[in-house]
Design a protein around this nucleic acid. Structure first.
Lengths: 192, 192
DNA sequence: CGATTCTTTGAAAACAGTCAATCTGTGTGG
DNA sequence: CCACACAGATTGACTGTTTTCAAAGAATCG
């Protein structure tokens, strides 16, 4: 379980054995069954989570109960509610396992300690954060500038691994259309 | 011109005179006339820009020529194309002055130097960056979960200063509806 | 003023959402 | 092993919203 993460790190940063050991020692392994939650609306997101196995989704629900998936996270990706994590406010989102999953979690205070003690780790996280920022801005742009069909096709191309593992209604929720509309888009797209 | 920025800094960070002086010495003042550009699609965003006077917008154009405003920046706000700035790739966006404006600009290499030499400045920018990240995620969520009318009302409440300074068609472009639709939304909202 | 620029309005068409019903595949318990 | 339940996917008919296109009305600026 930590091996997956070790591999992830080794491909992205140069760390000493002692540093790796420190990172390891502060991590907590968790297994999440399918349909299990690691965060529920109203709770505070207190951990940084690395997915070593499985697949999770972060979603919000609006006043009518409709779900909007903001993020998927499969192996080698991080997930938490950044807003709640950074501000300490109750989260507006839920994070649920789509498959049986395994994660490594660090308490915020421990994770901050790691960032401060290990410059290469901090650098890695900074780069990641910058990429997420860019992705987030682009996602907004796509949501307003693209048609539902374009969004669907982009999703399939960009996240084939996710596409093959989630029900279509979650794809619909991610791209922001109803499942019926997605179904109709697909019928047309296939015949083209 | 630098006074505005000095005030901005003093309200958010504790800096020595020497540090302020260093920041000042590396800054470049620029005046941008209304309709002038500080970045055009295809160019590389090489500067970090602080708006000390006026109002600018960052927008992209799609394949049909339709404009989508991603950001407004008035006094005391920063603006550049983060994607291009961080990756060094040509920008997909334009940054244009909506009013006669004045900005302070730092070359990326100079700005990085400031971040490295002045911890308090780095901390300030880190906090800002975190807030932008959160805002960006929320903006996406709003774009898919809210109706056009809700988005309009939220915009008016959240950015009254911007609302009072830009033509309605730019509000429409920002919230992602056609100007005709915004016009109709307003007629109905007012009568309520 | 006269010329832009901006806003509003009407009518039609395109698009997506909703509701209800049906279909499909999967897995579980008897 | 079968029957049934259940989650997911699709379809049809209808409704509602937004866009588009075209035109006309304000407002603003040199």
């Amino acid at each position: 379980m930590f091996d997956i993460f070790k591999k992830y790190l080794s491909e992205r940063a140069t760390l000493t054995e002692a540093e790796l050991c420190l990172i390891h020692s502060l991590s907590v392994k968790k297994k999440i069954a399918k349909r299990g939650f690691i965060l529920r609306k109203g709770e505070i997101s207190r951990h940084t989570n690395f997915v070593s196995k499985g697949l999770l989704r972060l979603y919000r629900t609006d006043h009518r109960g409709d779900e909007y998936i903001l993020k998927f996270a499969d192996e080698n990706h991080w997930i938490n509610d950044r807003e709640s994590y950074l501000t300490g406010q109750p989260s507006t989102a839920n994070i649920e396992a789509i498959e049986d999953s395994e994660i490594l979690a660090w308490k915020k205070s421990d994770f901050d300690l790691l960032l401060n003690k290990i410059p290469a780790f901090k650098e890695l996280m900074k780069n990641l954060s910058a990429k997420l920022q860019i992705a987030s801005e682009n996602r907004f742009y796509t949501s307003v500038s693209s048609t539902a069909e374009e969004k669907y096709l982009q999703f399939v191309i960009k996240y084939p691994a996710i596409f093959n593992r989630v029900p279509l209604q979650m794809v619909a929720s991610y791209i922001g259309v109803s499942r019926e509309t997605l179904s109709r888009i697909r019928r047309i797209s296939v015949s083209k």
